[in-house]
């Protein structure tokens, strides 16, 4: 009888411990993720409220009723369609060029044929962005393309090329060499082995490299704020200007901020798993 009782007690205390553990885990998860959730929620909340609610104290958390006026306002009063187009062209072209030159280069480095280049990319990674910007700015002025989308695209290569090379090196290094060697033995030349065998296997890696490079280029503010002209502003520059001109009108600024960052956040969802498996370790942020 007694032993049955103590067995039951042990069972109860075991269950209790398990439940306590679960509650502690739930609490930790909420604690860890709430700062991220709150900032994005607040961004959304500010963008959907009338100005009177945005400057109310204590703050209004849930927009009631929600309004899309702020979004209408930013698209009506400034040329966000043009700035969005600029951003897409610059980041798209810079990513594409980086893939064209970066993927084969990463292959060469991974095959152990260009360690020096790998080192160069490492040093490029730690160099402050302004040390590229000042000379490039002078160069663009000198050849007369300052303020053009072309100049912006060239400057963004500083971000995208190291990113693509970096991600692709680890991808090619992890790849089993047997298939390629078989192709070489069967009489393929190196280019064919790369193009027909390695490239198709590396396609998921190329997608990740492209998305990461595109996001980093899209998010870049420094190069745009210096090089872009009135008509060639990228979105982050346009949003920054919106703040300096509308100091106290929070709704439109929040709406613009959300419009700018939404593409990066959506793209992140696609590469979330790959970022987690460690591909991005050390490669994020130009």
């Amino acid at each position: 009888m007694e032993s049955v009782n103590s067995a039951r007690q042990a069972e109860i205390s075991y269950r209790l411990k398990k439940w306590l553990g679960r509650i502690a885990l739930l609490f930790s998860v909420i604690l860890v993720v709430s700062p991220a959730i709150f900032v994005f929620f607040w961004m959304l909340s500010l963008s959907l409220k009338y100005e009177i609610d945005n400057i109310a104290y204590p703050p209004v958390f849930i927009p009631d009723p929600p309004t899309f006026d702020n979004y209408a306002k930013i698209f009506r009063e400034s040329n966000y369609v043009l700035y969005g187009y600029n951003s897409v062209i610059v980041s798209g072209a810079a990513t594409l060029i980086a893939l064209l030159v970066g993927v084969p280069a990463a292959y060469g480095i991974a095959k152990g044929k260009a360690q020096g280049l790998g080192m160069l990319i490492m040093v490029a990674r730690i160099t402050p962005g302004l040390s590229y910007l000042i000379p490039l700015f002078m160069l663009f002025r000198f050849i007369g393309i300052s303020g053009s989308l072309l100049a912006l695209t060239i400057s963004h290569l500083v971000i995208t090329i190291p990113m693509v090379v970096w991600v692709m090196i680890s991808f090619f290094e992890d790849m089993h060499p047997e298939l390629e060697e078989a192709a070489l033995v069967d009489g393929c030349n190196i280019w064919q082995a790369f193009y027909r065998v390695s490239m198709p296997i590396a396609r998921p890696g190329i997608a990740v490299a492209a998305i990461l490079a595109f996001i980093q280029s899209w998010n870049n503010f420094l190069f745009g704020v210096v090089i872009a002209g009135r008509e060639t502003r990228t979105l982050p520059v346009a949003v920054f200007n919106a703040m300096t001109f509308e100091q106290l009108s929070w709704g439109p600024v929040a709406a613009a901020a959300l419009v700018v960052t939404l593409p990066s956040l959506l793209l992140t969802i696609f590469v979330q798993r790959d970022i987690v498996t460690g591909l991005a370790a050390g490669s994020v942020k130009g």
């Binding site: 998860v29 860890v32 993720v33 991220a36 959730i37 900032v39 994005f40 607040w42 961004m43 500010l46 400057i55 109310a56 104290y57 703050p59 996001i215 899209w218 998010n219 503010f221 979105l235 982050p236 949003v239 920054f240 703040m243 929070w250 600024v253 929040a254 901020a257 959300l258 700018v260 960052t261 990066s264 956040l265 793209l267 992140t268 969802i269 979330q272 970022i275 987690v276 994020v284 942020k285």
Partner: peptide
């Protein structure tokens, strides 16, 4: 949850900075 957690590092820094600017306002 992990996707949400890593969103900050992929978000556009300028946009984030603007939201924090509003959150840091001493009165409002």
């Amino acid at each position: 949850v992990r996707g949400i957690y890593i969103a900050p590092m992929m978000a556009t820094p300028v946009a984030i900075a603007l939201v924090f600017t509003m959150m840091f306002h001493p009165q409002l």
